[in-house]
Nucleic acid binder design. Structure first.
Length: 1195
RNA sequence: GCCCGGAUGGUGGAAUGGUAGACACGAAGGACUUAAAAUCCUUUGGCUUCACGGCUGUGCGGGUUCAAGUCCCGCUUCGGGUACCA
């Protein structure tokens, strides 16, 4: 019987299926072991040979563990939501659910052919409602919890509310978006809305206006890990920064725990390092700098730029290029400044009047104010705030927008005229005026707010604006203590070297610091930076910046320093402002040099004439109380000093940001969220899953809403006020507005409008969230779901979780290091805090399999002909390099017939074949082969290709053949280098594929797919088969094994066991080959040897192992056999071959008894004839004998 | 820039500080065959020698050691991660 892999593999795959060989259940009698693969995204292209690499590795380990008596959980599923299916749907109109289903079927078919031991009963798909119900459920939990920084743990939002009710925000230690302060009384006085708004500031899943990565081409927001070098990871489309109201997960709250947890897991150092960098903990201090002059100045308090300040200015080195600017900033305080939008005289006159109006608002004014003051528009409004000679009802200073609410008398002709005049004056001052009638406001306040919001979004930002002061009216006496600019630094020791400050262009501080004189310049700079994409900013490292006009006082030295604005400071990190120490920071140095700012060296003997000294070493100078300390001492001393003096505090910063969780896409999990008065509420858990609705097109709506905006009746109806009849929605009567306004909100406006805005009926229908969840949502807890995939009561039952606990071995690619592997750890820790899972870390051991790259083949067409020249002759011609399908090339030899049939244009191709190697012309004339034009990617790799092909010398034995060039490239369709596992299985069998993928090289290493060596592995299996069958008959002997045979077997058992434990599968395969070669040589056919060998091989090549195991007379599956154990007694050697070396060079081998003592070995070696010959009469200086290893004679 | 990995024959790759190149591919020669495929045997880092053997050899330059691919220092170079992170 021949080794007929096709028949054998099909047979066993059917038996496994029929017998449910791989079905797993909880079994308390056995220890558990959980082996997990990173589940694939089912793409339309199907699996290529790169995908199974990790799956084979984990499959081997699973089978090995099972043979050792473990109850192994080894599941598989699909990460089925994602962009490609949606992009495809947009192009073709095919529903992503349909294409995804087809792709999954194809994946399943391909996976089954390889013979994995998955328990397919546990298969999960993230796009199935049964599954994403629990994704939505987890989101609700996150909404209902906040993170207590003291306990380092998630706590219920109810417990936070209790604290607010008793103590206000005092003593709250919670991670939040923005620090808030209020008392218990203030909390109680707040409306439901206001309270909800405040709670959003603390929730772990929260909605906030954030600067996000917006990808216009994909039409969606992306998380930080989905963006690399300014372009989207998927598709490489440009990404820009935008402020949008989005759902986020407060992953940053868990930064420290995510960092600490790394010490408890068995991951590679490099992966832990990547995560550490991504989390980016840095210890430092936050320092307070006070801008000078304190602003504003002219309500009684004196402008006290006293002599002390001037002295300080003089004491610090003269600031070049800033002369005269100090006075201009002083002048700035005399004009209109910040929220003083009228002149001093008018202000005082109008102010009292305004106050009076304040206290007697009309009803519509009150309604609108209630909505505007809570920043529902995203901007701050003031009421009855004097502007020029008028007192408008509401004004947003930041956007120069005035909102008037008019009574009926405004309809009189006389009043219209007056209003128009007033409008004209205000418009000339740069304000936009928008009017609503009392009726508008009363009947549909929500509509009015939406309208204001839409207008405000389209207004250009004016620079000089309000403070971040929360009061609705200007502070009566202007305060006097002024603003504080906080900076974060890891080098508090360099405080005496601060010669300027820099603000990020997006920083709120910019508004505070920009003086009117500098406003134009600053505005221009900011709009210039805004225009640049992230990518351009990265690519172009020119130093740019602008002076704000203001100065600040160094809190330690008292020196006055200028405040600059530059985009080298990031708004999102630290405080968005830095203290610049040009002598000891290269970025500050470049900036100082460019703008001619002073540089004060702080380290004794350092030279900062050419570059900064960034290293944390040396002795401090020019640094007051820090002088004479080492840098490390100074860092600590400075921290203590600033804390004691109240100038600042010690602070730990993390680079890790919260995860933006909204995507403006269709093919993802819907949020279990509805909106009431513009605020989000969670659906009741009983309403889950909230299923993804059908839409007519997978595109944004005309209004720019996400695709879910197209869904019909995408509303939530609370049970108690459900309408009597479905679809009974009266057409709303709406106030008219400006035609030019569009809605750009999160809410489905159409749906909002479909709920009638009539008295007493508001809130009958609530619009549902239109965004969907991102790709990582579904993959964050899937490993838990596998434990209990059919449970409809919980994500996972406590019993299942207690038994399976967490993943013992996780295998997948490094590309998930900063995405999935951060998010799922976060997700797991959150569930752990809630007591829902019993392990803090989800993945105990993690291995990253290397990428399998493509190996492309090329043919060389002589220019303007249809003649192809073989590799080593191509330099004699001018040729064009063309990718050729690797599947018609074998060992770099082109199958000419297949090539002719490959494409019609090659049908009549002619070939110039290799000459005998000896007749080959020498030299490398005419190197210039023309690289393929067109798609940039292949051109990019051109140089590499050329080098590879030129450096490979002509091979022998190639005469008369067409030899192709080759290069390592990404495996992709366009390079014709995709190798499909099905084809390999077809040709060689799954066992050969499995062994060969493992044999290719170390698991963790990236390597090109090269079919050249596959024959060797296939031969090995045939040879193994040959130990059992001779001339088609089973010839296995029951005879007792010899010592040699036992030694061969047990040596192999030892090696294989060791290698599997160390995931060194490539050497295992070679150990099998050695074993079979040796058994073959001695013609061993004994069952006692062959049976353990088959069990040993079963994890690697399960089909042939099952077949041979059965042939040996076993009834049950080899999967339930016992893994052989090495018996060391068979390995004992009675002699050792000592290499005898002289000065480290081995000259001959001496075989000596293994138990011979050191002295005896030395004596025997020295007495040997060859030793005497080597010594040639000389006396050795030293003789080293390593028992059982080597003898070295030093002369 | 910073961090992490690599660099060994024509190729993929082996080698707890102890005979560098296991195992496999490819190649050469041979056996079987009318022939091919398959299979089996021999050789295969380079240089040198009829041969025995000798010399040399793990990216480069130093060092530690009786002994270095392996450890240390300094480079070169390739790959990956990350990036004005203060």
């Amino acid at each position: 019987m021949e080794y007929n892999f096709g028949v054998i593999e099909q047979k066993w795959q059917q038996i496994w299926k029929k017998n449910e060989t791989y079905k797993t259940d909880i079994n308390p009698q056995k220890p558990k072991y959980y082996v997990l693969d990173m589940f694939p995204y089912p793409s339309g292209a199907g699996l290529h040979v790169g995908h199974p690499l990790g799956y084979i590795a984990s499959d081997i380990y699973s089978r090995y563990k099972r043979l050792q008596g473990f109850n192994v959980l080894h599941p598989m599923g699909y990460d089925a939501y994602g962009l490609p299916a949606e992009q495809y749907a947009i192009q073709t109109g095919q529903h992503p659910a349909v294409t995804t289903k087809i792709n999954i079927a194809r994946y399943r078919e391909q996976l089954e052919k390889i013979g994995f031991c998955y328990d397919w009963d546990r298969e999960i798909r993230t796009c199935e409602p049964d599954y994403y119900k629990w994704t939505q459920w987890a989101f609700i939990q996150m909404f209902n919890h906040y993170f207590d920084t003291k306990l380092q743990k998630a706590q219920t939002i109810e417990s936070l509310i209790k604290v607010f009710e008793t103590n206000g925000s005092k003593g709250i230690q919670a991670t939040c978006t923005e620090e808030l302060t209020f008392t218990a009384e203030e909390w109680d006085a707040k409306t439901e809305r206001e309270q909800q708004e405040i709670l959003l500031n603390y929730r772990i899943a929260y909605l906030a206006d954030l600067k996000v990565n917006w990808c216009p081409v994909l039409g969606t927001v992306l998380a930080n890990d989905e963006v690399s070098e300014g372009v989207s990871v998927r598709g490489g489309h440009p990404v820009e920064q935008r402020v949008m109201r989005q759902w986020s997960l407060r992953v940053s709250a868990y930064a420290q725990r995510l960092l600490d947890g790394l010490n408890t897991v068995d991951w590679t150092e490099s992966l832990k390092e990547t995560q550490k960098n991504w989390i980016g903990r840095s210890e430092g201090a936050e320092l307070k700098f006070y801008p000078t002059p304190a602003l504003p100045k002219w309500e009684g308090e004196s402008v006290d730029l006293d002599s002390q300040n001037l002295e300080n200015t003089l004491a610090s080195p003269p600031l070049e290029g800033t002369e005269g600017r100090l006075s201009s900033s002083l002048e700035g305080t005399e004009g209109r400044f910040r929220y003083y939008t009228t002149n001093k005289l008018d202000w005082n006159l109008l102010h009292d009047h305004a106050k009076a109006m304040h206290n007697e608002p009309t009803e519509p004014e009150s309604i609108l104010w209630e909505m505007l003051r809570t920043k529902k528009t995203g901007y701050k409004f003031r009421r009855q705030h004097p502007v020029d000679q008028f007192i408008p009802d509401f004004v947003c200073l930041e956007k120069k927008l005035i909102v008037e609410v008019d009574g009926d008398y405004h309809l009189s002709e006389e009043q219209i005229e007056l209003d128009n005049a007033r409008t004209e004056i205000l418009e000339n001052l740069g304000y936009k005026i928008i009017r609503f009638s009392n009726k508008d406001v009363k009947s549909s306040p929500q509509y009015v707010v939406e309208k204001i919001k839409s207008i405000i979004l389209n207004l250009d930002v004016s620079l000089i604006s309000e403070t971040s002061n929360q009061n609705a009216v200007p502070p009566p006496s202007g305060g006097g203590q002024g603003e504080v600019i906080s900076v974060f630094t890891t080098r508090a020791d360099t405080i005496y070297g601060v010669t300027f400050m820099v603000l990020a262009p997006e920083s709120d501080y910019v508004k505070i610091c920009t003086t009117p004189e500098q406003a134009a310049e600053v505005k221009e700079y900011i709009s210039a930076t805004k225009k640049r994409t992230e990518r351009e900013r990265i690519a172009d490292r020119r130093v740019t910046g602008v002076f704000s006009g203001s100065y600040a006082i160094n809190p330690v030295s008292g020196t006055e320093i200028p405040i600059w604005i530059s985009d080298y400071v990031l708004a999102g990190y630290g405080t968005g402002a830095i203290m610049a120490v040009p002598a000891h920071d290269n970025r500050d140095y470049a900036f100082a040099k460019h703008f001619n700012l002073p540089i004060i060296p702080l380290i004794e003997g350092c030279d900062v004439s050419d570059e900064s000294l960034d290293a944390k070493e040396g002795i401090m100078m020019n640094s007051g109380f820090l002088n004479g300390m080492t840098v490390k001492e100074a860092i600590e001393a400075a921290k203590i000093y600033i804390t004691e003096k109240g100038i600042g505090h010690v602070k730990v910063n993390y680079r890790l940001r919260d995860a933006i969780f909204s995507r403006q896409r269709y093919w993802g999990e819907p949020f279990p969220v509805y909106y009431k008065d513009g605020l989000p509420y969670m659906l009741d858990e009983s309403r889950l899953p909230l299923e993804l609705p059908e839409v007519d097109k997978f595109l944004p709506t005309e209004k720019g809403e996400p695709p879910l905006g197209r869904a019909k009746n995408w509303n939530y109806t609370p049970p108690q006020i459900a309408p009597k009849r479905e679809g009974d929605h009266p057409t709303p009567t709406l106030p008219k507005g400006d035609g030019d306004c569009t809605f750009q909100t999160l809410q489905n406006v159409e749906n909002t409008l479909s709920s009638p805005p009539l008295e007493g009926t508001e809130g009958r229908f609530y619009p549902l969230e239109l965004n969907t969840m991102p790709g990582f949502a579904g993959s964050s807890a899937y490993y838990l779901r596998y434990m209990d995939p059919k449970n409809d009561k919980a994500l996972v039952s406590p019993e299942a979780n207690q038994y399976w606990r967490n993943v013992d071995l996780y295998i997948g690619g490094t590309e998930h290091a900063t995405g999935h592997l951060i998010y799922s750890r976060f997700w797991n820790k959150f569930l752990y805090d809630l007591g829902l899972v019993c392990e803090d870390e989800p993945f105990k051991k993690l291995i990253n399999q290397g990428m399998i790259q493509g190996r492309s083949n090329f043919v060389y067409r002589i220019k303007d002909t249809n003649t192809f020249v073989s590799l080593h002759l191509k330099n004699k011609y001018e040729t064009t390099q063309i990718h050729v399908d690797v599947n018609i090339v074998s060992n770099d030899i082109l199958d000419i017939e297949k090539f002719k049939n490959w494409r019609p244009e090659f049908e009549n191709a002619e070939f110039i074949l290799e000459y005998p190697a000896s007749t080959l012309p020498k030299g490398k004339e005419n190197h210039a082969s023309t690289l393929p034009k067109g798609d940039g990617e292949s051109v990019d790799l051109g140089s590499q290709n050329v080098e590879n092909t030129l450096s490979s010398p002509p091979l022998e034995g190639t005469e008369g053949r067409y030899i192709c060039g080759w290069a390592v490239e990404k495996m992709s369709k366009s390079m014709y280098n995709v190798v499909n596992p099905d084809d390999i299985v077809e040709k060689y069998g799954a066992d050969t594929l499995r062994l060969y993928e493992m044999f290719l090289g170390p698991l963790e290493q990236s390597k090109p797919w090269d079919t050249n060596g596959i024959d060797g592995v296939h031969r090995f299996l045939k040879k193994l088969w040959g130990l059992f069958y001779k001339d088609g008959n089973l010839q296995v002997s029951e005879a007792e094994p010899t010592a040699d045979e036992l030694k061969i077997l047990h040596k192999t058992i030892k090696k294989i066991t060791f290698d599997i434990e160390n995931f060194s599968y490539n050497t295992s395969v070679s150990a099998f080959m050695i074993c079979v070669n040796e058994l073959f040589t001695i013609k061993c056919n004994k069952k006692t040897i062959l049976e353990p060998l088959v069990i040993l091989l079963a994890p690697f090549a399960p089909h042939i192992a099952e077949e041979l195991y059965q042939a040996l007379g076993n009834q049950n599956t080899v999967c339930d056999a016992q893994f052989p154990v090495c018996n060391e007694t068979y390995l004992v050697e009675n002699s050792v071959k000592y290499p005898i070396s002289f000065n480290g060079k081995v000259r001959f081998i001496l075989e000596l008894p293994a138990d011979m003592h050191r002295e005896e070995v030395e004596k025997t070696a020295m007495a040997n004839d060859q030793t005497i010959k080597q010594l040639a009469g000389a006396t050795p200086k030293k003789i080293i004998v390593v028992q059982g290893k080597i003898v070295n004679i030093v002369m």
